[in-house]
Structure formats: structure tokens, C-alpha cells
């Protein structure tokens, strides 16, 4: 982890540091989005960047998500390295054609003769009282699209390392940030480094249950694991970090050790990416290591409500994770025990 030359910075600063580093290193990298210039981005991620790189490389766009994500797709096809920022991940609906029909498929449709090395950065998730059109977790949609990669770092260290990997990647990468992670601090090396896309990380070891999770939910899982430890339950927490391609091997190894699996995801439960995590386990050899049916902690199948208590009621919380693990452990032992 952190080398000697490191200091504590926020997740926001880590994302910025990756962009700044990549842009200093390669004139073909540019950032484009709404209010990313002097305003510094809706969440302040690009603050100060236009002063260093100028308006030609830190580009304020009109409110025109399809237009500029389409433009970035074309620039990437020409070999540039665009980073498009969407202010809220909900606005991704505006550019679905550009992402799903164009960027994701160009390489395949052209028989491998071309690629779209673009990064689309966007904050997802709820918990901010922003209601139904500014709080969604839609990342599972893109996990469902071959040709796209989807990453969702939970820590400043991973945010910097994964963003640098995403910018290097020859494919289109959706980079999910979280509004409630931007101020989270951690020791991060000064130097550039890469966290490989597609590798999960065991962030806490335990023998009793595997909690597979990503993004902000990773921190809820860790909080829950601490609380469970006080009750004599040691949870192993697997931070997926990348949702597509998903590191099924790491999840399987943990499940084979603990025999129990709980997925904690912020998106709505129905057809969420957690369903994929569990399906891969139960259709593979690791099924026989399970001594309980796996469980999911996810958002209720409703739009995100505005009122704080309503919002909390439908979202996953550390307490709900604790409850889910305890009910799982209390459940009748399965036939394979």
C-alpha cells in the first residue's frame, strides 16, 4: 500500500491527482464535461485543473451529455484519451446510445479493427437527499453490456490507481465515484501507480461469512464487520473494486473459506449486480462450499425518496448488513453442512 512518499488526501483529490498526472504525461488526454472548468466540477473534483491545462484540455460543455460523450467516443476512436465527466450518474440516460450502441460495440462490430479508449467518470449513489433523479445506482445496466468495463473504487488509493488504469485501458471504462466518498481521506502515494481493473481485494479477513461489496457499501460492510466482531462473528470483506469484468475467482476463494455469502450493493435488489455475484457462485463448484443460502442487502425496489428517514429506510445501512449476516447465521443449516 502507501509508500514512504505519501500523504493523506481525499478521494476527490485522488481522482484529480490521477487526471492531472495522466494529462501531464500525455497531451492526448483531456477532460470534458459540464462545469468542469473554472467552477471545478459539480463536486469540485476538477478544481484548479483548467488553470494548469487551459480550456482546450479541461473543457466546459453545454448541457449536452449525448453530444459530448459522442464526441469523446469519436476522439477516442481517433486515438485520443478522453475523460468525460457526467455531473450525476443519473444523467447517463441522456447518452445511452453513445455508450451502449457506439462506444461499447465499435470494436466488435468492426471485427477488432478499432477501439474506444474513453473514460466516463460519474458520481452515483444515494444518501444526500437529492431524490429520485440524482441518487440512483444504475451501474448494473452497464455490467450487462459486453464491451464496457465498470469500476467502482471505494477508497482514495483505489480511486487514483484505478483511474490511471482506466485512462490507460484501450476500452471504454465507466468509472463510478460516490458523492459520499469524495471527502473520505487516506494515505495515498504521491507517485503514479496502477490498480489493475478486474481484481477484487480482500479488505478484511474472517472465517465466518464473506461480504462481497463495492463502492460506498464497502465502508458499510466494514462497519458491519466491526460490529459483528463484537458479537463473535468474523466477516471477510471482499471489495470488488471492478464490477465488469468481475473477479469471480476472489469471491469464490473467500466463499470456499467461509461457506457463507452476503452481497451488499447500493442498487435496487431486482436484477442488481449482486444477483450476478451469487449466480456465479451457485452455478460453480463453490456452491458445494456453501452451508447457507446466500443473501443480498440492497436498496428496496423503489425510486430514491427525498425525506431523510424515507431514504434511510430503503437504502442499505451498516445495521441492515449486521442484521442480514445474523439472520443468515441463524438460518437452518443447509443440506451440505
Amino acid at each position: 500500500m502507501p509508500s514512504s512518499a505519501s500523504r493523506e488526501i481525499t478521494y476527490r483529490e485522488a481522482v484529480r491527482e490521477a487526471m492531472v498526472g495522466a494529462m501531464r504525461n500525455d497531451p492526448e488526454v483531456f477532460l470534458m464535461g459540464e462545469d468542469v472548468g473554472v467552477y471545478g466540477g459539480a463536486f469540485g473534483v476538477s478544481r484548479g485543473m483548467v488553470e494548469e491545462f487551459g480550456e482546450d484540455r479541461v473543457v466546459d460543455t453545454p448541457i449536452s451529455e449525448a453530444g459530448y460523450v459522442g464526441l469523446c467516443t469519436g476522439a477516442a476512436l481517433m486515438g485520443m484519451r478522453p475523460i468525460a465527466e457526467l455531473q450525476f450518474s443519473d444523467f447517463i440516460t441522456h447518452c445511452m446510445d453513445q455508450l451502449v450502441n457506439q462506444a461499447a460495440k465499435i470494436r466488435y462490430m468492426f471485427g477488432g479493427e478499432g477501439s474506444v479508449p474513453m473514460v466516463v467518470r460519474t458520481p452515483g449513489g444515494a444518501g444526500t437527499g437529492a431524490a429520485a433523479q440524482h441518487s440512483q445506482s444504475l451501474e448494473a445496466w452497464f455490467v450487462h453490456v459486453p464491451g464496457l468495463k465498470v469500476v467502482m473504487p471505494s477508497t482514495p488509493y483505489d480511486a487514483k490507481g484505478l483511474l490511471l488504469s482506466a485512462i490507460d485501458d484501450q476500452n471504454t471504462v465507466l468509472f463510478y465515484e460516490h458523492k459520499l466518498l469524495y471527502n473520505r481521506k487516506e494515505e495515498v502515494p504521491d507517485e503514479p501507480y496502477r490498480v489493475p481493473i478486474g481484481e477484487a481485494r480482500v479488505s478484511r479477513e474472517g472465517e465466518d461469512v464473506t461480504i462481497a461489496t463495492a463502492g460506498l457499501m464497502h465502508h458499510y460492510a466494514l462497519e458491519a464487520a466491526d460490529a459483528l466482531s463484537g458479537k463473535g462473528v468474523e466477516a471477510e470483506v471482499v471489495d470488488l473494486r471492478t464490477l465488469s469484468p468481475m473477479d469471480h475467482g476472489s469471491i469464490a476463494r473467500s466463499v470456499e473459506k467461509t461457506g457463507r455469502l452476503v452481497v451488499v450493493e447500493e442498487d435496487v435488489k431486482t436484477a442488481g449486480w449482486g444477483a450476478e455475484v451469487i449466480s456465479r457462485i451457485v452455478e460453480g463448484e463453490s456452491f458445494y462450499a456453501l452451508d447457507r443460502a446466500p443473501a443480498r442487502v440492497a436498496a428496496a425496489d423503489v425510486p430514491i425518496p427525498y425525506n431523510r428517514s424515507l431514504e434511510t429506510y430503503i437504502r442499505p445501512t451498516p445495521e441492515k448488513v449486521v442484521d442480514a449476516v445474523q439472520s443468515l447465521l441463524d438460518a437452518r443449516v443447509g443440506v451440505y453442512a
Binding site: A66, G67, Y68, V69, G70, L71, C72, T73, G74, A75, A76, L77, M78, M80, P82, Q98, Q102
Partner: peptide, 8 residues
């Protein structure tokens, strides 16, 4: 959009 990107 792709055409704009090539122009860019």
C-alpha cells in the same frame, strides 16, 4: 457525435 470527435 463520433464525427465531432474526429473533428476535435
Amino acid at each position: 457525435g463520433i464525427a465531432c470527435g474526429a473533428g476535435w
